[in-house]
């Protein structure tokens, strides 16, 4: 389960050589026919520019099916932009994305059926109650009413939101809002879950419950991608990890490969750099 599938054949798995200049993007891999065991998510030469700023600079990534994949990087590294492009929310300038062999930007409807997405920094339809919102997500997926009703009840119970099911989402706390958005992403039992900062503002008990749900999901053959700032969490929870900074993948592989004996946090700081020496705030010493 942990060995990365070699698909598409070009430089998969490890740190990708980033294109030196945005103007010469890497050639996307050939649009091959769907191979027998495609990775859950394959990204080739993904790039996006916002005005002068190059947010994502030729990202290559392979997420093996059945893996629990962590995406880590400093603020503004391009995690959210990459995930938005990978999930069909933001059209890339260059590059291609496959979900289980389905091209996200060529066959968006087929690809979206395979994915459950928790985007970061978007609003919810928060004038609906929690129950209505999850129901809405299920019905939008074209599921029938009975299945939706059953799953909504299960999800609300799993997220510990049963007692707030009839409260408007706008009145939810930040953590409850995250949980209800996660429930909306799970309702159609996707094969791949893409979660952008799923644990932000979620209380420890709920976070542990959600981790259990996600581990069960991975054990049953699903694939999870989470982005996070919390190295400790990723090291404990994930089996694979990729480090992104300045729009490039600096390292990718199994957690043990990437951390190479050190803790993930130390390795991350070593890769990304930018630690300040403790100087300059002498006046802050109270004595």
């Amino acid at each position: 389960m942990t060995s990365p599938d070699a698909w598409p054949p070009a430089d998969s798995g490890t740190a990708s050589p980033a294109p030196s200049d945005y103007a010469e993007p890497v050639q996307p891999a050939e649009t091959a026919a769907v191979p027998p065991r495609a990775p859950a998510l394959a990204v080739r030469g993904l790039a996006k520019r916002f005005g002068e700023k190059i947010a994502v600079n030729g990202v290559n990534l392979d997420v093996p099916a059945g893996s629990f994949y962590g995406l880590v990087g400093p603020n503004g590294a391009g995690k959210t932009t990459s995930l938005s492009m990978a999930t069909g929310l933001l059209r890339p300038d260059y590059g291609q994305v496959w979900v289980h062999g389905v091209d996200v930007w060529a066959q968006p409807l087929e690809a979206k059926r395979l994915m459950g997405v928790l985007p970061d920094g978007v609003r919810l339809f928060d004038r609906l109650t929690g129950e209505q919102l999850v129901t809405y997500a299920g019905l939008l997926r074209g599921m029938d009413r009975e299945t939706v009703a059953g799953r909504v009840a299960d999800l609300l119970r799993a997220m510990d939101l049963t007692n707030d099911a009839g409260t408007l989402v706008v009145d939810y706390s930040a953590g409850m809002t995250k949980k209800i958005a996660l429930a909306s992403a799970l309702i159609h039992a996707p094969k791949l879950l893409v979660l952008d900062e799923p644990f932000e503002a979620v209380d420890p008990v709920s976070a542990a419950n959600i981790r259990d749900i996600l581990h069960d999901y991975v054990d049953s053959g699903g694939t999870v991608i989470v982005s996070s700032h919390v190295m400790d969490l990723v090291q404990r929870m994930c089996d694979h990890v990729a480090v992104i900074a300045n729009g490039n993948v600096l390292a990718a592989g199994t957690v043990d490969e990437v951390r190479a004996g050190a803790s993930l946090e130390d390795r991350f700081v070593q890769l990304v750099g930018g630690r300040n020496q403790a100087e300059g705030l002498e006046w802050l010493r109270t004595s």
């Binding site: 109650t129 129901t135 019905l139 074209g142 029938d144 009840a153 009839g166």
Partner: peptide, 21 residues
């Protein structure tokens, strides 16, 4: 005020299709 679910409002009156939702 916390409220338990059970009331889907308009969602139970419209057909259970994407358009209805």
């Amino acid at each position: 005020t916390r409220r338990a679910g059970g009331r889907l409002g308009f969602f139970s009156r419209f057909p259970g299709t994407p358009t209805g939702a």
